[in-house]
Computed example of a mutant assay.
Amino acid sequence: MELEVRHLRALCAIADAGSLHQAARRLGVSQPSLTTQLQRIENVLGAELFLRERTGCRPTSLGRAVLSRARPLVDGMSDLVTAALAEAEAARPRGSRLRIGSTASRVIGGWLRRLRVALPGTDISLRVDVSAHALLRSVAASRLDVAFVHEVEGCPLTLPEGLEQRVLLDREPQFISLSRDHPAARRRVVELGDLAGDPWMVDPTVDGEWDGVRRVLGAAGLNPPVLHGDYLTAASLVVLGEAVAPCQPTSGPRDDMVIRPLLGDPLAVRLLLVSRPGTDIEVVYAQLEDAYRDAARRASGYHEWLLRHRSPLARTS
């Protein structure tokens, strides 16, 4: 294994964050993946670069020496990429273009379709990523114009300096998906205690997802079995009654599973549209708002929730 700039960037992130957990969030990777990467780097160098303590990570003397050489290289590469992107942008033929990014959402299709109608002749591209932080970095580096991201409650996103944000929804409740045979599926609203004996499926690659679920379960005094995996796999396990999983409230109805709100809405996210300064996002935001409202209307359980909470997004016209 040869050390590359991405390895040096990881070392700098760990030192700056003071913990593997926080560094992984900033880099948009899972903590186990970053831990493995650090171990491989240390194996190459033949010594520890960080002392793992209960309060976080602290550089060893060798770690400080490596960091002193790594930072100028990482900063230099960042400057080089920024300059290259600026030159490429300046050389590109002028024409209407919109590069949008989004974390996983059932709103994306409707948003994209509306943008194509509202902005005829505009070259619109889409990037979907599980990591909100990765999308934010792309906006900051001018690789994206806007990004629609969700911020898990209790796990704030680190917004790169200079970016602007507009809140679509300050608090979107996360619902729970259950098999149709689950005893709690007969209820309109499910209590966390009803799920104490069920394995929970959570995707740890989604920024803040596992932390948010763990915080809510801990506050409720619950410690159920937890499975880590993607939500496509989660859906197949939920259908079989092998797990329950948090889900977006805009999730559409299915014949083989039910979607229910949780009592008190303990799990929630904030929905944000982030852009670079000077970007005209009025049309982009308006089409996103319309697409979200339409998705909420089609998910009857969520539409009822919005009506109960007197949200303007419950408006149908």
Score class of each variant (00 low, 15 high):
Ser96Leu: 09
Glu151Phe: 08
Ala141Lys: 00
Ser179Met: 10
Val139Arg: 01
Leu80Tyr: 13
Ala185Glu: 13
His7Ser: 10
Gly154Asp: 06
Leu3Phe: 11
Val274Lys: 03
Leu272Phe: 12
Pro261Lys: 05
Val139Phe: 03
Ile41Arg: 00
Thr122Asp: 03
Arg186Asn: 08
Ser251Val: 09
Gly212Phe: 01
Arg64Tyr: 10
Leu240Ser: 11
Gly241Trp: 09
Gly63Pro: 07
Asn223Tyr: 07
Trp200His: 06
Arg187Lys: 13
Gly301Thr: 06
Arg298Ser: 14
Ala235Cys: 08
Leu126Lys: 00
Asp280Gly: 09
Asp123Phe: 02
Glu161Met: 03
Ala90Ser: 07
His150Lys: 02
Arg26Asp: 14
Pro93Gly: 05
Leu136Ala: 05
Ile259His: 14
Trp210Leu: 13
Gln22Ser: 08
Ala15Leu: 09
Ala84Val: 13
Pro249Thr: 13
Arg297Thr: 07
Gly18Pro: 03
Ala23Pro: 01
Cys155Tyr: 10
Gln39Leu: 06
Asp207Cys: 06
Val216His: 00
Gly101Trp: 03
Ala243Arg: 02
Val81Pro: 01
Leu62Met: 12
Ala70Gln: 11
Arg71Thr: 14
Arg116Cys: 08
Ser317Pro: 01
Met77Trp: 14
Val213Pro: 00
Ala84Lys: 08
Ala140Leu: 05
Ser33Phe: 03
His309Ala: 13
Pro249Leu: 12
Leu98Trp: 06
Arg186Ser: 14
Gly162Ala: 05
Gly252Lys: 08
Ala13Ile: 10
Arg310Gln: 15
Val81Lys: 02
Ala219Lys: 01
Ala118Tyr: 04
Gly28Asn: 08
Glu164Phe: 11
Met201Phe: 07
Thr55Trp: 12
Glu53Gly: 14
Ala296Thr: 05
Met77Phe: 13
Leu112Gln: 10
Leu222Asp: 02
Cys12Leu: 15
Arg113Met: 12
Leu232Lys: 05
Leu119Lys: 00
Arg127Pro: 00
Leu136Val: 02
Leu119Ala: 06
Ala147Arg: 00
Glu282Val: 02
Gly101Glu: 11
Asp290Trp: 02
Pro156Met: 05
Arg310Glu: 15
Gly154Leu: 03
Ser19Thr: 11
Arg254Cys: 13
Thr316Gly: 04
Arg99Asn: 03
Leu267Tyr: 09
Asp255Cys: 09
Leu73Val: 14
Glu151Lys: 00
Glu242Asp: 08
Arg293Asn: 07
Glu4Asp: 15
Val81Glu: 15
Leu27Lys: 01
Leu217Asn: 03
Gly56Phe: 07
Ala88His: 12
Gln31Lys: 05
Gln37Ile: 01
Thr36Cys: 02
Ala235Arg: 11
Ile108Phe: 03
Val130Arg: 05
Arg92Thr: 15
Leu240Asn: 09
Val238Ala: 11
Ser105Val: 01
Arg69Pro: 00
Glu87Trp: 08
Ser68Ala: 15
Ala104Arg: 09
Leu67Trp: 07
Val66Pro: 06
Val258Ala: 14
Leu80Cys: 04
Asp265Glu: 15
Leu288His: 11
Ser33Pro: 00
Phe50Tyr: 04
Ala245Gly: 10
Leu34Gln: 01
Asp203Ala: 08
Leu51Glu: 15
